[in-house]
Design a protein around this nucleic acid. Structure first.
Length: 261
DNA sequence: ATGGTTGGTAGCCAA
């Protein structure tokens, strides 16, 4: 089962790129972030024409997540538990079945950016990460293949940025953000990309500004965290970097893992 | 160099 995550930065602006990539890559499951659309505005017809069903958790103007899949999307949960006051659409969970009939629980998440630091936005980011850790612990206890897939908005280590010094005062690279991600991973999750691509210059995001992609001035912030039951079944991991060079690209590219399930 | 670019929306805000 090929499971991908992609922050598409607006589903309406990216519908051509999305359908082109779906046909090219043929993932079984896709977690989308920043759809920037209400549920009713999601292009279900275009996605269906490409062979995918969709479960959408949208919001007007900002945020918004969705799960696309070739097979039925079951037991959908919208929203991250732990704060009934939180109205931001950043989390969706569902169960998918693989070719061999094994169920995989997939969480698609869009972790808060948190900039600028020193404001309530950064406080919200850390609180959201605490809630994610609590949910992740419950998911591990299921002792089944689970994938946490999304834009985590955290640069784990200096080698995950071409120019780490440029991110020193950014919420994505704060010691508190990095420590919270380390604590989450230390519960027992496997960072699939880092585990299979241990070298430098492995990035998933390049800013639109200042020719960042041309200079390969990227960062690695889109992650796939696998439970032990999922990590044991990895057959391939990839980053579709070439998509960043397409016309009208998102600033993020698809990241995927293939599981034997 | 506090710039630069993009998307959603209709003012600027978020990234």
């Amino acid at each position: 089962m090929k499971i991908a995550t992609w922050n598409i930065n607006g589903v309406k602006a990216r519908i051509d790129a999305l359908t082109t990539w779906l046909k090219e890559a043929g993932p079984d499951v896709v977690c989308l972030q920043e759809i920037k659309s209400v549920d009713e505005g999601f292009p279900l017809d275009a996605v269906a024409a490409a062979g995918y069903q969709a479960a959408v958790h949208g919001q007007k103007g900002f945020n918004g997540v969705a799960i696309l899949a070739k097979r039925p999307i079951e037991d959908v949960q919208r929203g991250l538990p732990g704060d009934p006051e939180d109205a931001q659409a950043r989390y969706i969970e569902a169960t998918l079945s693989g070719d061999h009939g094994r169920a995989v629980r997939v969480a698609g998440l869009y972790l808060p950016n948190g900039n600028p630091i020193g404001t309530e936005k950064f406080t919200y980011k850390l609180a959201w990460m605490e809630r994610l850790s609590r949910r992740a612990k419950d998911l591990l206890a299921l002792e089944m293949p689970v994938v946490l897939a999304g834009d985590f908005n955290v640069i784990p280590e200096p080698k995950d940025a071409r120019n780490p010094a440029n991110w020193a005062s950014d919420a994505l690279f704060q010691p508190g953000s990095r420590a919270a991600l380390r604590a989450l991973v230390a519960q027992g999750w496997t960072d699939a990309v880092r585990a299979t691509m241990p070298g430098a210059d492995v990035y998933t995001f390049w800013d639109y500004q200042a020719g960042a992609f041309q200079k390969n001035d990227g960062i690695r912030i889109d992650h796939l965290l696998l439970s032990p039951e999922a990590a044991d079944r990895i057959t391939a991991v990839g980053i579709d970097r070439h998509v960043r060079g397409w016309e009208k690209p998102s600033d993020h590219v698809p990241v995927w893992v293939d599981l034997e399930v």
